[in-house]
Design a protein around this nucleic acid. Structure first.
Length: 199
DNA sequence: CATGGGATTGACT
DNA sequence: GTCAATCCCATGC
């Protein structure tokens, strides 16, 4: 992955990240669900402007923004757009690839579909903690690599973001069509119908 | 310095 | 379907 990939508009990056591979600590997975956030809309942490917390979101592209959610979970974002613009893509779900036994130990669950099917689950499965906030996604320890050949032409669908109260109507969530590793809550009634048809 | 809310998850009815 | 866990940080006194 090149630095320029992350400098593009955040909606483009969110769509293009689906199919890319996240690796950390002996485990990896293909991104199957993302959400875009931009400082111009109130659901984004950077909406309030530059603070100690949001400094990384306004920083150079290609870095990791990690925050604690509900006091319990860590959530992973990729910082986008040129430095000075607050934009990031939340990684919401992965299809597990490498280190599946490690993921099972870290998560304490067996079922493959339960390992990385949510933003808090995947950071636990890949052992990604808040201490990696601000780290470089091109240099590591967390690395995001381009789509494998098999994912080159993945069908990506846009829909509404979930789990938020502000600006929830924006269709800024991007999912791999029909994938079985999406976050469970991410499936709208329409998408469940689509999946049923796909089977 | 005290308070309140949140880009979630899992357990339970 | 409901609900609590639990911590970071922004805000207001």
């Amino acid at each position: 992955m090149r630095r320029a990939f992350y400098e593009h508009p955040v909606l483009d990056v969110a769509r293009d990240l689906v199919g890319c591979v996240v690796s950390h600590a002996g485990s990896s997975g293909v991104i199957v669900e993302t959400e875009a956030y931009h400082h111009s809309e109130p659901a984004c942490h950077a909406y309030i402007g530059m603070t100690a917390r949001t400094r990384v979101i306004f920083g150079p592209p290609g870095r990791a923004y990690l925050y604690r959610s509900y006091g319990i979970h860590a959530c992973l974002n990729a910082v986008c757009e040129p430095e000075g613009i607050g934009a990031a893509v939340l990684i919401r779900a992965l299809e597990p690839v490498e280190g599946i036994e490690l993921m099972r130990e870290r998560r304490g669950v067996e079922r493959l579909e339960n390992l990385c099917s949510g933003p808090g689950k995947l950071t636990q499965a890949l052992d990604i903690g808040l201490e990696l906030n601000g780290s470089d996604l091109l240099k590591g320890p967390i690395v995001i690599a381009s789509r494998p050949r098999a994912w080159r032409d993945v069908d990506v669908v846009a829909s509404r973001r979930i789990g938020i109260t502000k600006a929830a109507e924006l269709p800024w969530r991007f999912s791999a069509l029909g994938n079985r590793f999406l976050s469970r809550a991410a499936l709208s009634r329409l998408e469940r119908a689509e999946q049923a048809l796909a089977r």
